[in-house]
Design a protein around this nucleic acid. Structure first.
Lengths: 220, 220
DNA sequence: AAGAGTTTGTGAAATTTTTCACAAAGTTAG
DNA sequence: CTAACTTTGTGAAAAATTTCACAAACTCTT
């Protein structure tokens, strides 16, 4: 298959494109669906068709991590799903802290999808005395001043910021001081973190603006 | 400046990369901030630094749409902001419908950021009799069966789907039948739409999975 | 008004990402 | 077992995107 250069395949040696990581998540969604539909096997062209991409893109993405298919047969859905989960680090539980129990924070707390992928919100914080001590989705809302000790004790690894924009940087500082190494920021504010901390921003308006761009140039 | 080939510059002729569109939104955020901080002028290197990208990337992005700067001076923040808004189609109001007033739907209804960018949620729908007729964030929740007439009457152009996954495709069908040309889907389900309808998916878990990927291979 | 100093806009080069195309490896039918 | 199919995995080609590098254009100082 292909050319055998006689060299040892060095998995994980090459740099992985960000786009590949995003697509791996998408493959997972499709595999889930195919699994539910009773497919035991699938093929690159099937995954590709579902996601409206090229089938060799699928194979190339996977080839960056190993060989998971059988020529002539394709992939076992269950096995491939498991392999992708391994790649993405989803075979373990991740403990997540959420800061800011406003509308969006509450919605994310109630969101089932996180737990399904192994992300458990184990600590919740706010600075509003009216909220502190209350329970939401089964979790007590703690005082933001207790962030560091609680996060340390719970060994929380990921922080989700859902506070108003002006408070976002301050919360990010608290999180990094508490030893958090990955932050997902929903606040419409750009924040900076030490370079050993991975920051990911979710800008809810961004996709709407993208739609706006395409709507306003339709038929041009 | 550069070479003058004597040819007419054909703005909007070339294909615009998706990544450029996303960055334009980011430039807007930075310009907002710089404006608030009292900067009347800025330069490509300043915008680039804020976003951790290359400064020629900024200039190249903008050059796809025209010439907005002055050599030696940079860009007027207000003017550039306005130009980018024009490019993205944000100088007008967009009427938006939201379907599904659950946790996430409610959060998005209350989210201020949309209105700030010109996206007005003018129609809200649900299928729960307990919710229909109630008001949320000042807007009456309509019966989903009334979607088409109301959307037609209000001349709504964008639809936001925040219903549970199993209902997403059905809602998308209703929207397209009502003439909607752009859909933002928050439901964790892949849906299909006619090709003249622009579909954008927001997968809330996706970014967490990306963080997971990087966390689990730290120091590898 | 001339010279020093900036910063744009943009071809061209470099890099990255996607797609092509096909040998190898497997399956299935007879 | 063999022949006809199918699909993987992957070099190589193609395409897309980013970065470089610099002439041109503008400002500011003296």
């Amino acid at each position: 298959m292909g050319k055998d250069t006689g060299e040892e395949k060095l998995v994980r040696k090459t740099k992985i494109p960000e786009t590949t990581i995003a697509r791996l998540s998408s493959y997972l969604r499709v595999l889930d669906e195919l699994g539910r539909m009773g497919f035991d096997n699938t093929a690159s062209y099937q995954l590709a068709e579902e996601l409206d991409i090229n089938d060799s893109q699928v194979r190339k993405d996977l080839s960056l991590f190993g060989q998971f298919g059988k020529p002539g047969m394709g992939y076992e859905t269950t096995k491939l799903k498991r392999e992708i989960q391994k790649i993405l680090g989803l075979t373990r539980k991740w403990k997540v802290a959420l800061i800011g129990v406003g509308n969006l924070g509450s919605a994310l707390l109630a969101y089932k999808g996180f737990k399904r992928q192994g992300f458990y919100i184990v600590a919740v914080f706010d600075n509003d005395p009216k909220k502190i001590g209350k329970k939401w989705a089964g979790i007590v809302i703690h005082d933001i001043t207790q962030l560091k000790p609680i996060i340390r004790k719970e060994r929380t690894e990921i922080g989700i910021i859902t506070v108003p924009a002006p408070a976002a940087q301050e919360v990010a500082n608290l999180l990094t001081k508490a030893g958090i190494k990955a932050i997902l920021n929903f606040a419409p504010a750009r924040i900076s973190v030490p370079k050993d901390v991975r920051l990911s921003n979710v800008d809810l308006s961004l996709k709407l603006e993208n739609l706006s761009f395409f709507l306003s140039r339709r038929g041009r």
